[in-house]
């Protein structure tokens, strides 16, 4: 079925009755993110990769977990927040990142209640990429700019609007809602190719772990400043820290994003730090993205969105690392 361009706003209005719609939005001339739809204007679907990924919707930068009282009658109350939300216009790379987070937070052995509640109420509407940005490399990471298999619904660009493909039950519900606004016809535009390419392969993912002591880590780490930019802008980084805000006898336990690039991430109670320098920290990030996650969950944790490449203050580039490693270890495709 095809949704014509002129029917986009009516379609969003129908959707708005189901929950809060978050669309790619330019906050100012430098920053863009998924923000509530204003209810009347057409979302900027040409924004290739918002500065901030949509992960905040499911895994907030800061999330209250419990309210407690220690004074008087002690009490503990779980904070339940799971608003009905629709992520609209999610790129294939970001759609895949949600799939990665699902693997972690909705695992067989452990389910994270906070994430699970939010996730159940979020519908993901993905949108194919008509053009790619200079730092996009999803098609080197096993994805395609034209597909988002884990999204609930996929909108593929046609000449006059979008093909609507429901991929899950939630997606079918949306397609049914749009029944009167869609019609047969339309042909999806061919998928563009990413301009940035890198030589990632399953074999390399397997080899990297055994190269833990290779000089390569020392060679690539020095320009890194140890900031949180790459991990905080990464759609798949899911590390968090738990802390509390105490107001004398009562307070809130909360969790917030943390980053393996920070020095205090691995600092132990006695002061020892098993990852004492940028070499160990960068090695952990690259290995987690490219190898560890695959060992555990069967897929690579880097979806090729290019945010870390585009925003690193020192212009470190994970694709340059991958190619250097592939060349050195002879594990290229």
């Amino acid at each position: 079925m095809q949704l014509k361009r002129e029917n986009l706003i009516p379609a969003l209005r129908l959707l708005a009755a189901q929950g809060e719609i978050l669309v790619p939005t330019a906050v100012d001339e430098k920053v863009s993110k998924f923000a509530p739809w204003d209810g009347s204007s057409a979302p900027d679907l040409a924004l290739v990769n918002t500065t901030l990924p949509p992960k905040d919707t499911l895994f907030p930068h800061q999330e209250g977990m419990y309210r407690y009282k220690t004074a008087g009658e002690p009490s503990l109350e779980e904070i339940v927040e799971a608003p009905a939300r629709i992520l609209f216009g999610v790129r294939p790379c970001d759609a895949r990142s949600i799939d990665c987070m699902d693997k972690v937070f909705l695992g067989d052995k452990y389910e994270d209640a906070f994430y699970a509640r939010r996730r159940a109420n979020v519908t993901v509407i993905a949108h194919t990429c008509a053009q790619t940005g200079p730092t996009c490399f999803c098609d080197s990471m096993g994805l395609s700019p034209a597909e988002a298999p884990s999204a609930d619904l996929l909108l593929s660009d046609t000449e006059t609007g979008w093909l609507v493909t429901a991929q899950t039950e939630k997606g079918e519900a949306v397609a049914a809602l749009w029944k009167d606004l869609t019609a047969e016809g339309g042909e999806a535009a061919p998928a563009p190719a990413c301009t940035l390419k890198t030589n990632m392969s399953d074999a390399l993912a397997g080899t990297l772990v055994s190269r833990f002591e290779d000089p390569i880590w020392d060679e690539v780490c020095h320009a890194c400043l140890g900031c949180g930019t790459c991990t905080y802008l990464c759609p798949t980084c899911y590390c968090f820290d738990i802390n509390h805000e105490d107001h004398g006898g009562e307070g809130t336990q909360f969790r917030c994003w943390d980053s393996c690039m920070f020095s205090d991430y691995t600092r132990m109670a006695g002061g020892h730090n098993p990852r004492p320098s940028k070499k160990e920290r960068l090695r952990n990030r690259y290995l987690h993205k490219l190898a560890y996650f695959k060992e555990r969950y069967g897929q690579i944790l880097c979806v090729g969105c290019g945010r870390c490449v585009g925003h690193c203050p020192s212009h470190l580039d994970i694709t340059a690392f991958i190619d250097k490693a592939a060349e050195r270890f002879g594990e290229g495709k």
């Binding site: 800061q62 400043l225 802390n243 203050p313």
Partner: peptide
């Protein structure tokens, strides 16, 4: 993200006040 601090030549303390958050100077809350 503390990129501004980490890039700044005037920020040259061996340990930043913001990293000593258990002391309570800088909360991790956003």
């Amino acid at each position: 993200c503390y990129a501004c601090r980490n890039a700044c030549p005037a920020c040259n303390c061996t340990e930043c006040y913001a990293d000593q958050y258990r002391v309570g100077w800088q909360g991790k809350q956003i």
